[in-house]
Design a protein around this nucleic acid. Structure first.
Lengths: 400, 400
DNA sequence: ATCTTTTGTTCTGTCTCGAAACATAATGCA
DNA sequence: TGCATTATGTTTCGAGACAGAACAAAAGAT
């Protein structure tokens, strides 16, 4: 007979109303720039003050909201009780990259509670050993947390193709890792039963641009993000949400820029990374491969011909690849992150011109290139934001 | 002070529960392959039979569901009352393309109630005159509808960049039209006050693949769609929903395949359309530009060297462009529509090999190429489906 | 000292669903 | 024919959640 489908949307009941409104109130407080009162919450969400107060009380009791001391703000009327997201709830974000390991704890207010970032060269390292090193960092930042903290989740940003549902890193070219399940390797260093959700580094870094704190919108909501690490990862963000087939997407670095170009280690030819990847740019500019991006900026600013040519080629390649992306997804805003952000002043104008020429809709919506410096290891922050997003999506789970 | 935001999600109340459950019941019946009883609805949605009956009664009273005669199905127990989507509700889908005009009325059951498709060559025609001709077709199909029909909306599929929110066609290269507001030109032929929502032809055609009837899932739910008309349009479908910046996306035909390639009328160089567009294929095969696609198939099957070479080049170009798309959005299924569907048997295998070589995640999820023949003027069906989707999303609007 | 203003709380009424009992209409079998 | 069985559909009652309005509280303004 007809059966209840697993993925089918379930029916609404009275408790659904409460669940939805609790989430709405929590998101509202998180989205606000400053503290809100119960009356503010009522005004913003549209519920009555009575209902807002009930919902807020429940969230305060569960620690998801905190009542803070009121500023001395001389105004008529009964003074309001300021509400902010609960500081007890925090998430662990990890990142393993070719150039660094990072562990960072972010709380529901978006503050970095603790972090450790260790530079290094992890290309071709033994995954188990490197995960153990990362686990040690994680244990270290977790040890420093207050006793009443509640760790809501943990995520791991990885520079490669990830099957997020299965929790497997399929392939990270620049680390040289394949078919790896990081959760098991990290488990000994984490609280018992704590799962670690892997995700693509670019997807997670893009999240930090779309969301400057849990539930609070960032400067851009619709954009194509480019994450310049050693490779080039990408993400498409629509309405503040990273779209794509979770973890399988975003390999902008391997979009073909010139089918007659040189062979890439991925098996294809003329990939974007071969023109605009960190190593490609440094090599073309005649710099050592471990030079910091600032060196390239200085050389180009000084008019060094090789450096200028390297950036010209990079902008051209980015233009060809991104024009394709913009033509397909229709989002005219490109945000550069990672080392590309540091080159944005030099790359941006030329890149915008290439895009204007190659994007069909450019006459009506001229493509723009922006840059967001971002913290080192933005992927770690994004992984924490992702876990905290689960709390915002369903706060009831955390009230019991 | 803090204000109620326009786009903010509003709070839930009791009526929200009813609204959501009415929509759920309607979608459930629409999604089912055959008629459902009230008890079936209860079982599938998870509400009790009492609630299901209440909701169904309301939808039946409003005409959104129809109770039909029961088949003679010998079973124990009280016989069920079969429910199907209401036949009264229908939407108008229009399409204007370089090669045809089409008007089609589709009802909530997904049946084509009436249609007229007129082939012709509309390249470079006067938009007002062509819209008038299309309006006449629309008036014709609408005139034949039953008196109790309720027209829930109208859409227009156009082969170009559309600003759906503003209702404007910005640019349709193959029609030679720019900056056109079709709603005003069509208004004289339609019921007073009937709006016409324009949309990108490929987006709407893709919808017919994702949704074989209003609310009923089609054979694929996550795929990259290619619509081969004279140009090549595309759409990315994720979870059954067309993603992208409504109407601005999907210009796969102008993804760059070879930056050193010939100049395209769009201002870029080496666009996919110059290798795999209908005219490009026919020209390369030595056929006249108005030859039906079948001619190319026959020539190639007969081993004609020019035809074989044309298809090889086309498959190669599609491979380069689609590999980029798949690398970025991570969806390994490509569905060919339009004239490309007719060439699928010849293009598919080579295209799959190109994709396997150029897609980074191919080792784990090998890209597949499928084809869906689809009706002529699939965009018209998609436009109607889009309007009917509004009914499914908020049936309460149609109950009053 | 009292009025005004804003915030937060309490109380009642309404809406919708769940649960369970009940009614209905068919088949199966004696 | 008549009764048990079975599945569908309906009625009734109770519970949960919010809206609306009145009320209480805590400040500044006059």
């Amino acid at each position: 007979m007809t059966q209840r489908l697993a993925g089918a949307p379930s029916s609404a009941r009275q408790s659904t109303v409460r669940t939805a409104n609790l989430a709405l109130v929590l998101r509202t407080v998180c989205a606000a720039a400053g503290p809100l009162s119960r009356a503010d919450v009522a005004a913003v969400t549209g519920v009555t003050r009575a209902t807002a107060a009930r919902l807020v009380d429940e969230l305060v009791a569960g620690g998801l909201l905190d009542e803070v001391e009121r500023e001395v703000l001389p105004r008529r009327g009964r003074p309001a009780t300021p509400l902010v997201p609960g500081a007890r709830f925090a998430a662990l974000g990890l990142q393993a990259d070719a150039g660094l390991l990072a562990a960072r704890v972010v709380d529901l207010r978006g503050r970095v509670v603790a972090e450790r970032v260790e530079p290094g060269d992890f290309r071709g390292t033994d995954p188990a050993a490197t995960m153990a090193a990362l686990g040690a960092l994680a244990a270290d930042v977790l040890a420093g947390l207050p006793a009443d903290s509640c760790l809501v989740g943990a995520g791991l940003a990885l520079p490669g193709v990830v099957d997020a549902d299965a929790g497997v890193l399929l392939r990270a070219p620049n680390l040289g890792w394949s078919d790896l399940s990081p959760a098991g390797l990290l488990a000994p260093f984490l609280p018992a039963g704590q799962d670690v959700v892997p995700g693509n580094e670019a997807d997670l870094a893009a999240r930090t641009v779309a969301e400057e704190a849990p539930g609070r919108a960032g400067p851009y909501r619709d954009f194509v993000y480019l994450s310049g690490q050693i490779g080039i990862g990408g993400a498409v963000v629509l309405g503040g949400r990273v779209t794509g087939s979770s973890g399988w997407a975003g390999e902008v670095g391997h979009v073909c820029v010139d089918p007659d170009g040189p062979a890439c280690s991925c098996g294809s030819t003329g990939c974007l990374e071969l023109y605009a990847g960190r190593h490609a740019l440094l090599r073309a500019a005649g710099l050592p491969l471990d030079a910091p991006p600032g060196d390239l900026v200085r050389l180009a600013a000084a008019g060094d011909p090789a450096a200028v040519a390297a950036l010209d080629t990079g902008a051209w390649a980015l233009g060809v690849a991104l024009a394709g992306v913009v033509n397909v997804v229709g989002i005219p805003t490109v945000v550069l992150g990672g080392h590309l952000a540091e080159l944005a002043d030099l790359l941006g104008p030329a890149l915008e011109e290439h895009l204007a020429r190659r994007v069909l809709s450019a006459r009506w919506r001229r493509p723009r290139v922006a840059s967001v410096p971002g913290p080192p290891a933005a992927g770690a922050s994004g992984a924490a934001l992702q876990a905290l997003g689960d709390v915002l999506a369903d706060p009831v789970r955390w009230l019991g």
